[in-house]
Design a binder for these strands. Structure first.
Lengths: 337, 337
DNA sequence: AATTTCTACGCAAACGTTTGCAACATTTGC
DNA sequence: GCAAATGTTGCAAACGTTTGCGTAGAAATT
C-alpha cells in the first residue's frame, strides 16, 4: 500500500547520518567513504528511492520537459512528427508535454502561456492555419525559452526552423508527371496563408516553366479538403480541355480525386494521372495505389527535437539561427504512368 | 530581453512589504487591506508575474500533470484518443505528458518509471501487444497514483477501465452482413493476446450462432496487418467455397482486402462484401468506400480523461472500480450490399 | 484608564534537493 | 610531539511557494 515516496531525509534518519551525506553518496562523490556509500545505496535500492523532480526543478529552475504546439494530432503527418519527437526526447531523457491548437490562433496563444508557466525548457511549434499575429511567440523568445518552428514556420520570428523541402518535393513530382507524358497538370492547392502551400505551388510552376509548359491559373484551384474536391474536380473534368493529371496538396484530396475520376469513366493512370503529398496510410488503400511525395514526418520530428535539445545543452553557443531542410522523396506507385 | 521570471520576493522587495503579504494579496485573502491588494496586483500584472509551478508542486507534491502511455501515436484510432484526452485535460487545466510503448513491453515498463518519477497525478494507459506481465502497473497502484486503462485493458489489475464496446460492435456488424444476405463471412482477426480481439471474435461468433450459421474456424485466420492480408486473403478466395464477405479487424486490412478481391475479378459488394473496424481516414479513400465500425476514439479519450480527473478531484470517494463502455456505431458505406 | 477585540501584516517553517563551507578525526611529515 | 595535510562528515542556505502563529497598533468595550 502506497507509502509516500521515500526521501533523502528518510534515508538519513534510518541510517543515522546527515542528508547531505546521503545525497553525496548517491551521486558517488569521492569524498564519501566506500562503506557509507554501500550502506546508502543498499537502503535506497531496497526502498526504491527516486529523487523528487520537483525539488530538483526548483533548484535548477528547469524540469527537463519540452513543450510541443501542434495544429492537429489526428493527422498522419503531424502524428508522425510527434512520434519522432517523442522518441528522440525519450532517448535524451526529456519529457514532452503537448498542446493542440486545433488550427485556432486563440488556442495557440493559450498554449504558449500554458507551456511557459509550466516552465518547459524549450518549445517546438507549428503554426495553426489561422494564425496571423505572432506576439505570443515573441514572448517565448523574450522569456529566454528556446523555440524551434517545424513545418509551418513563422518567418517573422528570429529563431531556428526545420521544414520539409516542399518546393523540391513539388518540383520533382511535377517533373516526374511531365516525364511520363502528362501535358496538362492541374494543381489542387491550399490557401495563401501558409508558406508551405506557396512553396509547393512555386515548385510546381517552376517545373512547368522549365519544360516550356504554360502555367494556367484556371487549373490551380484552392482545393485542400475532400469536400472541396467533390466540387472542384468534377468541374475540371467536364471542361473541353480537361487535365490529364492532378497534383494534390495532400493524400486525402488525391484519393478523393481518384475516385471521382473513376466515377466519370476515366482510367487512372491511363487517362489521367494522380499524385498526392504526404505518403500517409491512405496511399496504399486507394485503387490504384497512390504515387505521392513522402513528407518524412518522423525524421522531421526527430531532427527538430535534436536541434532543440542541442540548443539546451550547449546554451553558450549562440551560432545564429539554424534552418534545416528535410529532403522529401517521391514514392511512385500505380496512380501515375 | 529575458529577465528571469519575477518572484514573490521581487514584488515584496519592490513594494517594501513581506513575501507572505504579497502571496496573500494575490490570492485575495480577506486579511489584506484593499489598498495593499491593489498595489500588489498592479505590480504583478505589470511585471507578468507567474507563480512558479515547481515551487508549488514541491509543497503539494503534485504538478497537475497526467501521464499517458499509448502503444503508437501514428495510428488513427490512438491519435483520436490522444486528441480527446488532450482537449479534456486542457479544459480542466491539466497538462499531459506522453510516452509511446511502440508495442514493446520493455518500453512500456520504462514509461511507467518515467511517469512515476515525473510525479504525475495519474496515468492513462493502453497495453502494448507484447505485454504479458503487469508488475509495472501494480507498482503504479502501490504508489498511490490513480490509473485508468483504456481500450487495451488489463483485467488482472484492479483499477478503472474504459473500453470500446468491441463485442457489440462486432456483433452488430456481423448481423448486418447477414441481413444483407451474406452466407459465409470470413473473420480476419488478431492474435489471442489482446482482450479486444477476442471480444470481437466472440461478437462475430455469437451473431453467427444466433442466426443458425456455422462457426467455421478455417475462415477465421489471424490477419491484422496488410502484409498478412496479402498472404491470407488470396488463399481464401481460391477455395471452392470461398467466403462471400470479409469482416476485418481494422480498416487497413479491410482496404487491402477490397483491392485483392478486385484483382481477382470479383466485385465489391455484389460478389463479396467487406467490413472494417475503426472508421479512420482510410474508410472514405477506398473504392468502394468502406463500411466499418466507428470506434469513437475521441469520445473514449475524453471519457477516460474525465474519469481520471474525477478520481483526482474527489480522492476520498473510493466507490470501487469503474468500468465504462463506449458504444460503437456501424457506418454503412458502399463495400457492403 | 485599562482591557479586550480587530485589522493588517510579518516571521519562520516546510516541501526535497544540492553544495560551499566548517568541523572533526586520523594520519602524515618534520 | 606538534603542525599540517588528508579524509570523511555535518550545517545551513538556497530555490519559490504557502500557511500557522505571533504581534503591533488602532479601535472598541468596560
Amino acid at each position: 500500500m502506497g507509502k509516500k515516496q521515500i526521501t533523502l531525509k528518510d534515508i538519513a534518519k534510518a541510517l543515522d547520518i546527515s542528508i547531505s551525506t546521503v545525497s553525496r553518496a548517491l551521486k558517488d562523490l569521492p569524498e564519501i567513504s566506500e562503506e557509507t556509500k554501500i550502506k546508502v545505496r543498499k537502503f535506497a535500492k531496497e526502498h526504491k528511492y527516486k529523487p523528487n523532480v520537483l525539488a530538483l526543478g526548483l533548484r535548477t529552475n528547469t524540469n527537463n520537459t519540452i513543450g510541443i504546439i501542434i495544429p492537429e494530432i489526428v493527422h498522419y503527418f503531424f502524428s508522425s512528427v510527434l512520434s519522432g519527437m517523442q522518441e528522440e526526447a525519450e532517448k535524451e531523457d526529456y519529457n514532452i508535454i503537448i498542446c493542440q491548437s486545433n488550427e485556432d490562433q486563440l488556442r495557440e496563444v493559450k498554449a504558449t502561456q500554458i507551456l511557459l508557466s509550466a516552465k518547459v525548457c524549450g518549445i517546438l511549434a507549428s503554426l495553426s492555419k489561422t494564425t496571423t499575429e505572432f506576439d505570443h511567440f515573441q514572448e517565448v523568445i523574450d522569456n529566454d525559452t528556446p523555440l524551434v518552428f517545424f513545418d509551418r514556420i513563422c518567418t517573422g520570428i528570429n529563431t531556428d526552423k526545420v521544414v520539409v523541402d516542399d518546393y523540391n518535393g513539388s518540383y520533382n513530382a511535377t517533373e516526374y508527371l511531365i516525364s511520363t507524358g502528362c501535358k496538362r497538370i492541374a494543381f489542387l492547392g491550399a490557401g495563401p496563408n501558409l508558406a508551405i502551400s506557396n512553396n509547393r505551388r512555386m515548385g510546381y510552376e517552376d517545373a512547368l516553366r522549365k519544360h516550356g509548359m504554360p502555367v494556367d491559373k484556371t487549373i490551380m484551384p484552392i482545393c485542400d479538403t475532400i469536400s472541396l474536391a467533390k466540387e472542384v474536380v468534377p468541374e475540371l473534368l467536364l471542361r473541353t480541355n480537361r487535365p490529364d493529371a492532378f497534383f494534390a496538396i495532400n493524400d486525402e484530396v488525391a484519393s478523393s480525386c481518384i475516385n471521382i475520376i473513376k466515377s466519370f469513366g476515366y482510367h487512372v493512370p491511363q487517362d489521367i494521372s494522380v499524385c498526392g503529398f504526404t505518403n500517409g496510410n491512405i496511399a496504399e488503400a486507394t485503387d490504384p495505389s497512390l504515387t505521392t511525395v513522402d513528407q518524412r514526418g518522423h525524421e522531421l520530428g526527430t531532427i527538430a527535437m535534436e536541434l532543440l535539445i542541442g540548443r539546451l545543452k550547449g546554451k553558450e553557443k549562440k551560432e545564429g539561427v539554424v534552418n534545416k531542410i528535410i529532403r522529401t522523396k517521391l514514392i511512385v506507385r500505380e496512380s501515375t504512368k
